[in-house]
Design a protein around this nucleic acid. Structure first.
Lengths: 234, 234
DNA sequence: CACAGCCAACTTGGCAACAAGTTATGCTCA
DNA sequence: TGAGCATAACTTGTTGCCAAGTTGGCTGTG
């Protein structure tokens, strides 16, 4: 017991065990250094990590405090029902905001996925999802202009993707296989989510097809703050 | 562009874009400090973070180098087929080692899940999974002694859980709903996985029931190194 | 020329001293 | 007595210096 990561573990277990509660003041860096018999710099590093992991916040001249962790929202990972509908059904204070709609430069993977050619244009539509006014998920939909002619005009006004599909005459859908992975937020994602760097994001890649024709309508990438959710598979 | 996290982002994008490849030597801390016009301590912090995220390794007196990232193994998240079978079918160099089998102290959640009482004993069986000799997943099975009388004797010899079930007369199974979450490894998990602290773990909680009687046989918790896998949902 | 050894110029690692911010106490003065 | 200000004792934040490790080139010697 001497490395800073050991102290991180220790403090996390003390916080989750209830020894320290939300907004409690933690021991000062010097106290930590004394109790664990390490130089202050080690105690300090431990606190810096905890801050980046979203467990604590610090106030210069005052001390370090336990952060209020977000509630764990149960999220069912299936493609059939829209995200907003799921959230509203569960009774959450849900909001959604479309934050961008812009053309992307050529990208082999996405163009192949949408079964389109280099001559086509593809737009990405970003929608930020809020629960209790906190941004907790980012949906990025990639749509081809050859399929959705007016996407560059109306993209920023889309609130529900399914509604938009309906207005284009697509009424029944198949979901393509979903791929899950974990990543860390980039600078812009950190800004959007207003979150520390070391909060991992759960990334869900999927797609949507028209059931009748089999045409690929959308390539979808969803980024979830992993500290806000637990995910239920069926 | 001045914070250490911005430099982390920048370097990650340079590495993934192919500007720096595996085992390439990265600019020294001082060079980073000069190019981004920050004090060396900032450059240093950025490198420390990258090291803990598993992107780079450092050699004192020599420099910092790009780490060989693990291949992404596609893992299908369904409870029907055993983990080892899936891996072997895909042609991976797969190994499994049972590393512990011990009684746990009373824990309400697990006891309830296994539908047993405080008088019962519950054992946890830990199996570490290797691919290409690298530990990449930890399976922890919780089994009740009332269901598996000889678990404390033979627990350490179990290689396949399904085989063990068969030997007890259970032949057909139902999988309970799976819950997914993300966490960071504890000290012991870090030792087992031989990994830096900031590699997130994907945690899959599930259970196994006997199809005929509906009896809950097992509470299962699987920890996957998130940097080794991409997960496919069906 | 060949080779051994030394030294200088890099690298990362660690730490101590100082800076800045906050608070509480106690002193001064009306 | 009471209000206000100075100060001391904490807190976290920052920086710069030196130690330790590695490399490669230069130099002296056979």
């Amino acid at each position: 017991m001497s490395h800073d990561l050991d102290i991180v573990d220790k403090l996390i277990s003390l916080m989750s065990s209830g020894k320290y509660n939300a907004h409690d003041r933690l021991p000062s860096e010097n106290e930590i250094a004394d109790t664990y018999e390490v130089p202050r710099i080690t105690a300090r590093k431990a606190y810096e990590r905890l801050e980046e992991m979203g467990y604590i916040y610090k106030k210069q001249g005052k001390g370090s405090y336990v952060k209020d962790r977000y509630q764990q929202i149960e999220l069912v990972l299936t493609g059939d029902v829209s995200f907003s509908q799921k959230m509203i059904e569960k009774g959450y204070d849900f909001q959604s905001k479309t934050i961008f709609c812009q053309e992307i430069k050529y990208n082999k993977k996405i163009y192949n996925y949408l079964e389109t050619t280099k001559e086509d244009k593809i737009f990405k539509v970003g929608r930020l999802r809020y629960i209790d006014r906190q941004p907790i998920a980012l949906h990025v939909s990639y749509l081809a202009k050859s399929v959705f002619e007016d996407i560059d005009d109306v993209g920023r006004d889309i609130t529900s993707m399914f509604q938009y599909y309906h207005s284009k005459g697509y009424t029944q859908f198949d979901s393509k296989p979903s791929v899950l992975s974990v990543s860390f937020p980039t600078a812009s994602q950190r800004t959007l989510f207003n979150c520390p760097h070391l909060i991992p994001l759960l990334v869900l890649e999927s797609g949507c097809m028209d059931k009748k024709t089999g045409k690929v309508l959308e390539y979808l990438k969803i980024y979830y703050r992993s500290d806000c959710f637990s995910y239920v598979l069926c």
